[in-house]
Each structure stands twice: as C-alpha cells, then as structure tokens.
Write a protein that binds this DNA or RNA. Structure first.
Lengths: 151, 151
DNA sequence: CTCATTTCGGTATACTCTACCAAAATTTGA
DNA sequence: TCAAATTTTGGTAGAGTATACCGAAATGAG
C-alpha cells in the first residue's frame, strides 16, 4: 500500500512538515510534479492525517504532565462508550490507549500546574461513571517525545 | 513569556502546521507581517520546536504498538545515562518518560508486527544493562493521540 | 515632553504551489 | 507479439506565498 518512494516522502515530511515540494522532490529523487502528486495522494488517502507545529510543552507554560492508568468497574458498551467519549473531548488528555494488562487504559495528560491537575482529577476523571481505579504517575522528565514512525 | 496573541498562533499552528501566514494572520486578527514576525520569533526561541506531518500508524504499516514499564536495578548515573542514551537513539521508541511510581520509565514503542516487537525486546531492551523489570502492555486500540496542547 | 526603542502595516521581489499539457512508461487483452 | 488503453512521468505558466525592507505608529524611560 505504501511503497518505497512514499515511505521516503513520509520519513522526510515527519521530520520537516514544512519542507517545500522542491526540497522533498530533490531529497527523494523525483520531479517536483511527481512528488507533489504523491504527497497529495498520501493526504487524500489519509496516510498523512495532517500537519502540526510541535510546541515545547514547558516553554509554552504547561509545567506538569502525568501518565494515568485507569481501569473500569465493568466493560459494558455503555460505560466504555461514555469513558471514550469523555476522554476524547477533554483537551488535557493528549493520549489514550486501551491496553492489555492490569489497567484498561493508559492516558497522558498535560496541564499548566498542579492545581490544574487536581482540578482535572476532581472535576473530570473521578466523575466519569464506572471507574474502578485511577493511578497517577507524574512525569519527572521527558526523555523522548517523537511523532516520527521508524520507517 | 508566551502571551495571548502567541497562544492563538500556537493553538492554530498545532492544528494546521501548514497554514499559510495569511490564514494565520486573519485567524488571530493581525497584519501578515506582524504575524509572520511572531511566528519566526516563536521558532527561533524554541517554543515551536519544528513541524511534522502526522502519519496514520496502521495505514503506514505499523500494525503493533505497546506501552512498556521499565524499572532499573540501580539508579547510578552510569546506568541511567546508558539507558537514556540507548532509548533515545532507538527509533521504535517514540516516547520515554521518567515517572513517579513503581516503574521508573514509561515508553511507547511502535513496530511493524509481533515479530519485530519480539526482536525489539530480545535484541534491544533485554540487553540494556541494569534493567530490573520490563512489563509490556500491548495497545489494543488508540482512543486518542494528539500533539495539541490545551491552550 | 523628548528621545530611544520596539512594534506596526504595507509593499516589492523572489520563491513556491498547483493545474494542465503532451510525452513516456506501463498494463491490458487478443 | 503487438497495439490500444491506462497510468505515470517531467515541464511549464499563472496564481499564490514567503520574506526582507521601508517609514509610520506605538510604547517606555528619563
């Protein structure tokens, strides 16, 4: 589905999302028009979901982040859908994965400070129906944070 | 440090990293030149770390991902530095956070398939010196995965 | 108030994107 | 094997955009 030339394009655009089409074409060794068409095809087929500026969390004023492990009391569609719906809407939740293991869900949450985190837990997380357990692990240091898939 | 107009610019560029300067300027209500200067200042000061195409993991051929909890035997700088150095270089590791709690580190790993994951563990993770324990949680479903800070 | 500094909006120029073309390459079917 | 049909290619023109520079306006300090 994604062939070699496409993989090269993706690899490069993941590292420089504002690369000009000319740079890209040169990098992957094709004409600007061929390259441009491939990029557009990747966008339209949904392989490229979009483009984003990557903002330094701390510099932008978000001093605190945490990893949360959440498990639900019951796994009826009713509770699961409600949980998913609420978590998806909540902007402090940057990531949420359903996983194997003890906890049902792994979340990553970003907030401005401890007060905001407290509020996030009290006003949002603990009010979601059907939650059995929430474990908070505060992030002490970001060793690595990347969006670049290992092509 | 980051004031209101900047926050608006960042909020927008996080959602559309390829927005033209004109769109941006209109969106945040300033002239194109003022807007362009602010963006450049944000880039040069490191608030904007870069730009990236966001690639759909599964569509790009990475069928498997997992959350790993890792704890070290000892926390001498020697072992910690070695761990951080190796993990930072390894492209399958998209995220690594040092956290409070039982596990010292939370990683997110992305690979093409189960075989690649096995190899990742055997050839890489289990060979890092000083590791006490690794717990793998396979990601069953990505509920949410965002790079947009909650401005 | 006055001077110095910063920030502003407008503009010219060089660069880039995008749609279109005919040519080349590839695939299809007999 | 060949020729028709389809896809993909590179080049190009015009519209759109980024970027450096200008003098004007706003801001701050003494």
């Amino acid at each position: 589905m994604v062939e070699d030339q496409d993989a090269q394009i993706l690899a490069h655009l993941q590292k420089d999302g504002r690369a000009t089409n000319q740079q890209l074409a040169e990098e992957v060794g094709m004409s600007t028009s061929a390259c441009w068409r491939r990029v557009r095809a990747l966008e339209e087929s949904g392989v490229i979901q979009g483009y984003a500026a990557l903002v330094a969390r701390e510099r932008a004023g978000f001093a605190m982040s945490a990893v949360l492990h959440v498990s639900l009391e019951r796994h009826d569609a009713k509770f699961v859908d409600e949980f998913v719906s609420r978590v998806t809407k909540r902007r402090e939740v940057l990531e949420c994965f359903a996983t194997t293991g003890d906890a049902d869900y792994h979340l990553r949450v970003v907030v401005r400070d401890m007060a905001a985190y407290n509020e996030f837990l009290d006003e949002f997380m603990f009010r979601i129906p059907g939650i059995r357990h929430v474990r908070s692990n505060v992030i002490l240091k970001e060793i690595k944070s990347s969006v670049v898939l290992p092509f």
